[in-house]
Simulated assay, not measured.
Amino acid sequence: MSRPPIKGLLIDVDGVLHIDGQPIPGAVRALAALRARGIPFVLLTNTTIRTRRQLGHLLRELGFPVADDEIVTAGAATATYLRKHYPDEPCFLLVEGDVREEFAGIPLVEDDSATVVVFGGAGPAYTYDRLNQAFRLLLRGAHFVAMHRNLVWERRDGLALDAGAFLLGLEAAVGRSPHVVGKPSPDFFRAGLARLGLPPEQVAMIGDSLNADVLPAQALGMTGILVRTGRFRPQDLERGQPDVSLASIADLPGWLETVGKH
Rank of each mutant, 00 (worst) to 15 (best):
L58E: 15
G97D: 03
G97W: 01
N46F: 08
G26K: 04
L58M: 15
A33Q: 12
I49S: 14
A32T: 13
S113A: 11
T78L: 04
R60K: 12
V42Y: 05
Q54Y: 10
A104H: 06
E110P: 02
L31Q: 01
D20Q: 04
T78R: 00
T51V: 05
R35M: 10
V109Q: 09
V109I: 05
P25H: 01
P4C: 10
I49A: 13
L34P: 03
L10N: 13
E61K: 14
P5D: 14
I24S: 06
L59Q: 07
V28P: 07
L62Y: 09
K84F: 04
L108G: 01
L58F: 05
R35S: 14
L94Q: 06
A36V: 14
L108V: 12
T73Y: 15
L58K: 14
T47G: 02
V66M: 15
A67L: 11
Q22P: 05
F103D: 09
G105L: 07
T80N: 08
L43W: 01
I6E: 04
Q22S: 15
T115W: 02
L31R: 09
P107A: 10
N46E: 02
V118K: 11
P25W: 01
R52K: 00
E102H: 08
H85D: 00
A27Q: 13
E89L: 06
T51F: 14
G21Q: 12
H57K: 12
L62F: 09
F103M: 05
